[in-house]
Amino acid sequence: MTEKCPDYVNELNDFLDGTLDAATCAEIQKHIGHCDNCRIMVDTLRQTVTLCRGGKSEPLPAALQARLDGLLKARWEQKFGRSRSQ
């Protein structure tokens, strides 16, 4: 006879993000304690987010800014007319 891992699919993300109720959380925690696959799954899913977070942030490129200055002004004048954009 075999017993399957508990079905915690719907709770998985809440568990990982710490937004799951304490009782279900304890249940999953207990299962992870003796199921290697589930423990590794949970651990690597956690690391996935840590690794994907925080890419370097780049400011808007100067060339784009220069292009935008002209384009936005032109669109503005089209909409409101030249005199009102001054």
């Binding site: 017993e3 199921c35 696959n37 690391q47």
Partner: peptide
């Protein structure tokens, strides 16, 4: 999700029915 890990209830032994997952070692 990982292949369900089968547990033989009579012997209490756990037996994976799919290859174990790779454990990340300080990527």
């Amino acid at each position: 999700l990982p292949g369900h890990q089968a547990v033989d209830i009579e012997s209490g032994r756990s037996e994976a029915d799919s290859p174990g997952l790779f454990e990340w070692k300080d990527p």
